[in-house]
Structures are given as structure tokens and as C-alpha cells.
Design a protein around this nucleic acid. Structure first.
Length: 569
RNA sequence: CGGGGUGUGGCGCAGCCUGGUAGCGCGUCUGGUUUGGGACCAGGAUGUCGGAGGUUCGAAUCCUCUCACCCCGACCA
């Protein structure tokens, strides 16, 4: 491809709409343009990258025996009503009506559609196992689309669905997809980690996320220094402290803490470590008032809290409800002296505390030296309700946990029979008995992979594409293309020869000055740059520089094809 | 949804407080000089100042409403 006949609208300055580095670079390099919030057009160069990612995914999925299909983006409401998800999905789902006033949605995912196919077409265990996949546009009306294609509303997803005759088969299919994902992300040149995850709204039992490691990631993942344990912090278990609760050593006393509503402020005022304080979080379950206790240096994990028996579904109590139940303003509330109707749940770490500090249920005061059993009843329940923090013991007992940020690019779920049962899909087993197939579903955010790759691979000059997703392998920069016949002939010849051996080359044949061409080439991040100049040609030499190399290397023009073939391999 | 912010030529921004009919840099077009790290000179084009309404002799500027976009939050006692 020649730049003069291509379309790469690069920008010197990033549009004000962009915040994240990958988003800025995608706009500046002319990969994408925004149409509306969370809606992006892919320009030629960007689309080439997207297709590269898709190709790797297809190759690996096909190699694993998955079968590509293509399902409609627009789906009838009836299908979703069968699984109740017409209601469950809520405002995340984009809905519409056709001319007959019938309800449809723009599919946020395709379990219902694929299960509909399965219930119509799969009749015998002899047809199992089978795995269908597609690469297709999804729409999710996100609360807050952001970071360009990283969290877009319309995006491309590879989604796969496996059907097995039994649980053992599902386990095999799940593992096969886990392995495929590992191969895909490895091939794409990403640093990633597979982490245990909550199965969330999709439902099911086993689940792993594939997280690309990046500081700007929206997800926090916990991993062990002493084993291969890794989990989303939403899921990572916080073990009870190894040491039992010490004996009470101090009397309980009320201390004035005017204006100090946060644990951090109270600890600072009293000159004590934050981990001696306890914060009380007020929740409502119907009309029940619950008080959840976590240490001042910890944070509540809502997913874990929802698993406390009797608490789900819950919401945070309003200020008015707090005052009604505790007769105190938020900021000074605590578990001491509360009415017996208040359900108190202590995090495991709180249950092991003695002489702690908490709100006094009186504005402007906290209590110090508080002890369970002596000053207040033992909590009604002790549970793991907090997020793990760096330094916690690993749940598998090996090593300690570290926290890293990640971008979720893939997610595998073992669904079981949730959808096949809800939609009446069944096949006849070897005994001629109808059985619901065991299902799994497996997603990769194709468009997000592109953004994640940039987030992980860029420098101050621009993108640094991992080879398998680079839009072109080589950027050919002739200096004086329009002035020097020797340069033009050499550049044209090398350009042609490289294409002949299957190396994708982008030839910058514009009349731009060298600095402009270099800057653009670095911005769009091709892995290899070749510079051809009259000066070098006089000695029979041209230059090669890898995108990560600090300086160019002179190579013999006659050997250029062989050298580049080797280096781009 | 709550809070904050921003909408001025393709991109980045100034002008707004203190109303007088729009400006800078980049880009772009033409001509010329340049040609190994985002050149220079000369000339040109491009704006319903997000939209609607109002105040005023006069509105980018003040007021009201509205739309769009961005950021933060929704983990808080």
C-alpha cells in the first residue's frame, strides 16, 4: 500500500474527548473516529488491525474444532422473555420496536439465540459435543461509555457456545476454550493473566477472566506471590487473620471527634493506625436495617456482601434511614448499643479485633477501646465481606497477595443447563432419555483487544504494534522519492519484492519532508521501518530499524529482502 | 442516576468577567524556495460562536430552557 493512495488521517494533537493513552493514539494514528458516545467508526488502518486480531482468533478457534456461525444482531423479545433476561438485563439492553410494534433488542450477547438453534437442531448425543462461535457486533447501553473502544456501547465480540452431553464433557470443552484463549492472547503478544472470576449476570458455575495487565485497567486482580493463584478482587477470598482475637486491654471510652466523619480522619486525629478503626456501612434489605463492619483500611465488597445469608438484595441506606435506626448522623455510626433489630455483620478481620475504634452513634464522637462480648454482643454473623488488599495471605495458603490492574479482554463461563433448561433444549442420550445439554460460553472483546494492546505497547512517539496485529509489517520511507530516480527505483523495487514474498509494506511516497514521514510512521507503530536514501544507496546500503530499537542499522540493499524476510518472520 | 466541566473553521485553543458584530497555532489550498526528524516565504479558503427563546439599539459575551460531549462518583458513613 502506498500512503499517497491510502487514508491515514494522523493528528498532531489528540482531540479533547480522549483521556486514556490508547484512546488518544487510536485517534491520532487515524485508526478510529467517534460518531457518538461509545460509538466508533473504524478507518482503513484500524480495520486492518481489527481483521488481524480476528484472524488469529479464527485460526485458533477453528483449530480447536469450533464452528463459525453468524447470528442476527436484532433479536425478538420473546426469546429473552423465556429466560427472564428481558427484565434482568435492564437498561443495559438497547430495545426497539418494529413497524408492528413488536419488541426487539439489539443483542448484548447471544445465549438465547444459540440455545434456540440448539433446541431445534440438536436431537442426539451423537451430535455432541459441538461448539459454535461468531465474531459479531454487540450493543450494550453502558452506564458510562469511556476510553474510546475500550468501553464502547457498540463493539465487536467473538462469542462461542459449547454444548456437551454431560458435566465431564463441559469440563473438557471449558478447558479446551481456556487453552485456546491462552494461545490466542499469547500469539497476539499480550501480557495477560487468567484469573478466577465471579460469573455475574451471565450465570453459571466456573468462570475465568483473561486480563491484560495494564495500570490503566478498570479491573483489579489479586495474584499470589507464592503460587499461580489469581482472581478478580471481586472474588478473591480474604482469609480470617491467622492470629486469634487478643484479649481486651483497654476500657471503652467516648472520645470527641468533631468534624471527623471518615475513618482516615479519626485515625489521624487520635494518632492511631487506620487498621484500629472500624467503619460501619448501613444497608437496607427490604425494611431490615443492616450494619456491616469492615476495618478502616478495608473496603466493602458488594458481591461478597450479597452472599451473606438473608442480605441480598440490598441497597445502601439513605441518610434518613440511618438517622431513623441509629438516631445519629452518618459519619459517627457504629455497632455499639444498637437496637436488637439491627443485623450486625462483621468482616472476618473485624471479628478478630480488640480495643478498636468505631462511631459512637452520637454526632461528633467515636468510641475507643471497644471489644466484642464485653461492650457489645458478638456480631450476628462473621463473613468475608471485604476486598482483599496487597499483603493479604493467599487463599490457597501459599504466599501473599499482590494487586494489579487489568483490562478484561476475555471471559469463559461454564453455564451448565441454565439456558438449555429455561428454553427447553434437550437431546436424547444413549438410553433414549431426553437431557438438557451442558453449556459453556466464551467471549473475547475483539475491539477491546486492540485498545488493550496499545495500552500495553506504546511510547511517547506512538503505538508499538505486536507483530501479529500490526496493520503492515514494514514501513518503507524513501527520502527524496520524488527527486531521486535511484531512490524511487530502489524503493519501488523493494516494495514490490516484499509484497511478492508476502510481507505487508506501507510505502510512504508522499512529498513530505523526512521528519513528517518518520513521525507518522512511529505514530502508527509498524514493527519495522526501512529508510532508503540517495546517500545510502551510493554505498549500496539502506537502513532498518525495529520500532523498539534505539538506532537504525545499515543493511546491504542487495540482501534487504532476505534480511527483512528473516526479521519479520 | 448524582456531581463537576466543556461546546468558537478539520484539530488544539484565546476572546466571555467588563456586550459593539471573531482571533491565534496546527492543518488545508495556490505559487515559490526547501528536503535525514513534525521547514520557510507570499497569497487564499474555511465559522448558523452546539441549539431555541429572551434582555438590549446591538449578544460568542448577560438571562432562561435545551442538546451533545468529557471527567469524577455511584465502595458511603
Amino acid at each position: 500500500m502506498r500512503v499517497s493512495r491510502y487514508f491515514i488521517p494522523t493528528l498532531k494533537e489528540a482531540p479533547a474527548e480522549s483521556e486514556l493513552e490508547s484512546h488518544k493514539l487510536m485517534l491520532r494514528a487515524g485508526l478510529i473516529r467517534r460518531l457518538g458516545s461509545g460509538l466508533y467508526s473504524w478507518l482503513p488502518l484500524g480495520l486492518r488491525v481489527l481483521r488481524k486480531v480476528e484472524r488469529v482468533i479464527r485460526e485458533e478457534m477453528d483449530a480447536a474444532g469450533a464452528l463459525e456461525v453468524f447470528m442476527p444482531a436484532v433479536q425478538p423479545a420473546e426469546l429473552w422473555q423465556e429466560t427472564d433476561r428481558w427484565d434482568v438485563f435492564g437498561p443495559l439492553m438497547l430495545r426497539m420496536k418494529d413497524r408492528h410494534e413488536r419488541d426487539f433488542c439489539f443483542g448484548p450477547t447471544h445465549e438465547e439465540v444459540i440455545t434456540d438453534i440448539a433446541r431445534r437442531e440438536i436431537r442426539s448425543y451423537r451430535q455432541l459435543p459441538v461448539n459454535f462461535y461468531q465474531i459479531q457486533t454487540k450493543f450494550r447501553d453502558e452506564i458510562r461509555p469511556r476510553f474510546g473502544v475500550m468501553r464502547a456501547r457498540e463493539f465487536s465480540m467473538k462469542d462461542a457456545y459449547s454444548f456437551d452431553a454431560d458435566k465431564a464433557g463441559l469440563a473438557k470443552s471449558y478447558q479446551a476454550m481456556f487453552d485456546v484463549y491462552t494461545r490466542i492472547f499469547t500469539r497476539l503478544g499480550l501480557r495477560f493473566r487468567a484469573v478466577a472470576a465471579d460469573s455475574g449476570a451471565i450465570g453459571g458455575s466456573a468462570s475465568h477472566e483473561f486480563q491484560v495487565i495494564a495500570d490503566s485497567g478498570e479491573d483489579a486482580i489479586a495474584y499470589s506471590t507464592g503460587s499461580d493463584y489469581a482472581a478478580n478482587v471481586e472474588l478473591a477470598e480474604a482469609l480470617a487473620p491467622a492470629e486469634p482475637r487478643p484479649a481486651a486491654a483497654r476500657p471503652m471510652q467516648k472520645v470527641p471527634t468533631p468534624g471527623k466523619a471518615r475513618c482516615e480522619d479519626v485515625a489521624e486525629l487520635l494518632g492511631v493506625p487506620l487498621n484500629l478503626t472500624v467503619k460501619a456501612i448501613a444497608l437496607m434489605h427490604d425494611q431490615e436495617f443492616w450494619l456491616l463492619l469492615v476495618r478502616g483500611d478495608h473496603t466493602l465488597n458488594e458481591i461478597k456482601a450479597s452472599k451473606v445469608p438473608g442480605l441480598a438484595p440490598f441497597r445502601f441506606a439513605t441518610e434518613a434511614e440511618i438517622e431513623r435506626h441509629l438516631h445519629c448522623k452518618a459519619g459517627y455510626i457504629g455497632p455499639v448499643g444498637v437496637a436488637p433489630t439491627v443485623r450486625v455483620v462483621a468482616d472476618r478481620s473485624v471479628a478478630a479485633m480488640a480495643d478498636f475504634i468505631c462511631g459512637a452513634n452520637e454526632e461528633g464522637f467515636h468510641l475507643a477501646g471497644v471489644n466484642f462480648a464485653r461492650d457489645l454482643p458478638e456480631p450476628a454473623a462473621v463473613a468475608d465481606i471485604r476486598n482483599v488488599v496487597a499483603g493479604d495471605r493467599s487463599p490457597d495458603g501459599k504466599g501473599t497477595l499482590m494487586i494489579a490492574r487489568g483490562i478484561e479482554v476475555g471471559h469463559v463461563f461454564a453455564l451448565g443447563t441454565k439456558y438449555s433448561e429455561a428454553m427447553g433444549a434437550s437431546f436424547l442420550d444413549e438410553q433414549g432419555q431426553p437431557q438438557p445439554p451442558e453449556m459453556g460460553c466464551y467471549g473475547i472483546g475483539v475491539t477491546r483487544v486492540v485498545a488493550a494492546a496499545i495500552e500495553q505497547n506504546h511510547d511517547t512517539r506512538g503505538i508499538i504494534w505486536p507483530t501479529p496485529m500490526a496493520p503492515f509489517q514494514v514501513g518503507l520511507v524513501p527520502i527524496g522519492y520524488h527527486k531521486s530516480e535511484a531512490v524511487r527505483e530502489a524503493a519501488d523495487e523493494l516494495y514490490r519484492k516484499l509484497w511478492e514474498v508476502g510481507i505487508e509494506v506501507l510505502l510512504d511516497d508522499r512529498t513530505e519532508r523526512p521528519g513528517v514521514m518518520f513521525a507518522d510512521m512511529e505514530l502508527i507503530g509498524l514493527p519495522h521501518r526501512v529508510v532508503i536514501s540517495e546517500r545510502g544507496l551510493k554505498e549500496g546500503q539502506i537502513e532498518h530499524q525495529g520500532r523498539r530499537d534505539s538506532a537504525p542499522e545499515r543493511i546491504d540493499y542487495r540482501n534487504a529482502l532476505a534480511i527483512l524476510t528473516e526479521r519479520t518472520a
